[in-house]
Design a protein around this nucleic acid. Structure first.
Lengths: 189, 189, 189, 189
DNA sequence: GATGAATGAGTCTTCATTCAT
DNA sequence: TATGAATGAAGACTCATTCAT
């Protein structure tokens, strides 16, 4: 299996999935766009779902690595939480196919992969929370994390539905607002 | 046109769209599930999209009506906002197909219908906000509404992705938390 | 069976057959254009082919009647032949559906009806020929009639295929030319 | 793309088009008759119209080639004109689908291809006329060619409508008669 | 390993005809 | 007799997957 070809297929598939959606992208399209025979794709990935799986593992893996290393240097909780959320938003912004919902029914694997991602984000934000605040009641902690994840997914969905370009600055301000509110409230008590 | 059959088709289609998604649901499936000939469906709705359109108009129309009338009796901003959000969530919870994204590409109508829904929710929440707080700066008002809509969509997406049953009580508490935070913060100033 | 409705259906069907062709005209179209229920059409004509049959019998019958009576007054062979041919061309020009070829395979009836028409034209032209020329050998007579019928059908086909309006004058000149040639040749001998 | 299969599909389609007409021939029929999967047909020709297009180009192209080369050796105008007309008639006789008119409405391409054919026939006959007669007035030339083309189409249509086998000899005599008449008339002057 | 021609189940849609009211 | 809702066979086209070369 040629490593170059393997990667080329993956990059092409990603581009097409992002532009046209997973369902609308035919394996034929990937093959001809990647200047590769359809058979080669099946030799490498077994099925259309195989491509998707490889792509997901790839994306999520590299995000995970990046997160783990970046977290070490965080000095401020507000900045920390914002960093995690923004990076996660960038991930979807650059790879919208990650939230394509075509695969829903007959495929638990992919769903769980994406859920892994969110579990990861949640864990990391939890760690940040714990590092900078003394003590939080379990239910309070859970609620804060839920709120943050909800907000993340809500923004993510708005990004996906947006026809115009995304106003990153505005999103950052929105996150500032929410995180600020949460943190200051904690400080109050 | 038999009103009974018309309705039966609509209900069957809704159930199948919800369970299997719009794309995966064949018109044949709807026909046989509704114990109706395929032709009957085409006589009534013209096309698969026609079914979807009727379903959307149905759902959204009745939501709009319910909202408008319920709003009159609101006494408390926290309760008001929560009510709007919860009802909106129930709508998606009972009709997950509403957020199915398969049809989007070549069809502006449906997309705009769903967006109408969100515009409506936003408008109503804006009205509640204005009724109970004296004055809010324009950007502040916008930010609050954005935060609420993001949260709504985030929860909605979590509901959609959830395999297990939704914990309504928990969601209500989460909303309480966020809205409480927003309102109390306003009170502070 | 209401005579009015019967006729209305027939006229509507004719108009639609002419404009859109027989195949492309659905029974539903005829029904709604004639402001009549589809069932009524089936009560009156039994089937789509039934409509067509009635229409053909109608058209051909009235053509036949007109021909028979007009022939009596013919004074000149050239004028006579030209008259028959021109009238026949007008028939197709006004009712193009008569030469629609959709019905070919499984329907001998219609084909033979149209062939009846051509047999009639041929008979009449034969009679004219006999009346004005003394004696013609059987094969010669046959050949002349064939040539005339071929010409007729050729022009007819050109009319059918024509996108622009038909130049009646030109056609008349063409017929003059051919008939003149035929007649003068007979005179020679 | 297997050249054999490509050809097999084309031949099968031609046979079915000829026997049952274009509309009545389903792509499924072609597939099963050619012992080929439906998909193969679509891989090769894209659509049902694609098959038809390939067939037309094939037929007309080879006719054109044959005509061009055969014309060189013509010694006699009567024989020349007859040759062109007879060959053209053979073309339709062997491929009646060429004059099937079902596809016409929304498809200009095919129509114009067939019209190209007739333009070609006309051009060639014009050349023959010019070669063997000294001078013809423009309107006379046009009238002769019209008459010949009308005759051609008329005979063609009779062939198409004929249920029994065509009597080639008789047709040849008919053409002899007409062409002889035209040429001798020219000689007279 | 790479190739791409071949496969055929699955989709949406049309329309002549029937039949209960 | 008139109506028109219901029927379902038939048709064109798509695309993930296989396999011989």
């Amino acid at each position: 299996m040629n490593k170059n070809k393997h990667l080329k297929i993956l990059r092409t598939a990603e581009a097409l999935f992002n532009r046209f959606g997973i369902k609308k992208t035919a394996v034929d399209d990937i093959a001809s766009s990647a200047h590769v025979a359809k058979g080669t794709i099946y030799n490498n990935f077994g099925s259309k779902e195989g491509i998707l799986g490889a792509l997901l593992k790839d994306k999520i893996g590299s995000f995970e690595g990046m997160m783990e290393s970046a977290i070490q240097n965080i000095k401020d909780p507000v900045e920390g939480l914002k960093f995690v959320l923004i990076e996660r938003l960038k991930l979807i912004q650059n790879s919208p196919f990650l939230s394509d919902q075509v695969i829903r029914v007959d495929d638990m694997t992919f769903n769980s992969l994406v859920e892994d991602l969110d579990r990861l984000v949640r864990t990391i934000m939890g760690r940040i929370l714990d590092r900078f605040t003394d003590t939080i009641s379990i239910p309070d902690r859970k609620r804060i994390l839920d709120t943050l994840v909800y907000q993340l997914r809500g923004i993510e969905q708005s990004i996906r539905g947006a026809i115009s370009v995304i106003d990153t600055e505005k999103i950052e301000q929105d996150l500032d607002y929410l995180i600020g509110m949460i943190i200051s409230r904690r400080a109050h008590k």
